[in-house]
């Protein structure tokens, strides 16, 4: 017993090494629970406020680009408004029941990355502004990510550039849907899987969100088909998608509050448990 004890004392550096490494690996393996914790990621007060003041300075350098995007979106919205006004020149607004399922919260990106294997995004809006976990994040050019953890006035989420998450997306022209997942290589491209061989796919086709999950409304821009292959022995295409959002320069985003997502989620659960219907 004493010799065992002596051995332990003699080898304490190795034991300490093992201990610290085991702690670290436990952290890595349990990323999910820690990611949702409030203190050990960038949504905690100290790091979020630091990043917030940092980005307040840095964002000035990107203003030119942001302005251009806003102008483009402005004109796009104006065109759309014009079209609706022309289609229904004299309809009474009250007759059309408004079915606004989504509410948008605008936020500024205070921290972001594109060159890790798991990329995260931190926003300067939190619980008190109505941000909740599992809400989608979009920008003027397309989808950005999903909120995973929220503190009082900051929130953090996975960006599309994170293989631990995938988006349900479809081909705009024929509606076939699959899941979009990032392969960890280039921040400009991601892969769309689960599109069967009989579907007509062409380079340049537009990919949009499917709207099957309550996270994103239908038809938000995702990207365009850059190339596609038919791997032998499989039933599905591997489609390489050029993402429409430039993740390197994303500054202003909107968080989507799905007003009916809770109801939808409840219905899904009930259906899965066999309680709904009949």
């Amino acid at each position: 017993m004493r010799s065992l004890f002596r051995l332990l004392v003699k080898n304490y550096p190795f034991l300490l090494f093992l201990f610290l490494e085991v702690v670290s690996v436990v952290f890595i393996v349990n990323y999910n629970s820690f990611q949702r914790s409030r203190f050990l990621n960038t949504s905690n007060a100290v790091s979020a406020s630091l990043y917030s003041s940092y980005s307040a300075v840095v964002q000035y350098f990107g203003l030119k680009k942001v302005n251009r995007h806003l102008m483009e979106e402005n004109s796009f919205l104006r065109n759309q408004l014009d079209r609706y006004e022309n289609v229904l020149p004299d309809s009474i607004p009250g007759l059309v029941p408004s079915d606004s399922t989504f509410h948008y919260i605008s936020a500024r990106v205070i921290n972001n990355s594109v060159n890790r294997q798991q990329n995260y995004i931190t926003l300067n809006r939190g619980r008190k502004h109505g941000v909740k976990p599992d809400q989608g994040i979009i920008t003027t050019t397309g989808i950005v990510g999903i909120i995973t953890s929220v503190s009082e006035s900051y929130s953090m989420g996975l960006s599309v550039l994170n293989p631990r998450w995938s988006v349900s997306a479809k081909l705009k022209k024929n509606g076939y849907y699959g899941s979009l997942i990032w392969d960890g290589k280039d921040h400009k491209f991601a892969d769309l899987n689960e599109i069967p061989f009989h579907v007509d796919v062409a380079v340049g086709d537009t990919i949009v969100t499917s709207g099957y999950s309550s996270v994103f409304p239908e038809g938000i821009m995702v990207g365009t088909v850059k190339s596609f292959t038919q791997p032998p022995g499989e039933n599905y295409y591997v489609i390489n998608v050029a993402l429409s959002t430039d993740f390197k320069s994303v500054t202003w985003v909107e968080v989507i509050d799905g007003l009916k997502s809770e109801e939808l989620e409840k219905l899904k659960q009930a259906t899965l448990n066999g309680e709904a219907g009949i």
Binding site: S24, V25, V26, N44
Partner: peptide
């Protein structure tokens, strides 16, 4: 090792990669 762990975990918290930098530093 303790100082390396402290530094690693600090970098981790700021880059949302809990455990990765601390393990490499130790």
């Amino acid at each position: 090792m303790l100082l390396a762990f402290a530094l690693g975990i600090s970098v981790d918290i700021f880059s949302n990669s809990l455990g990765v930098h601390s393990a490499a530093s130790v």
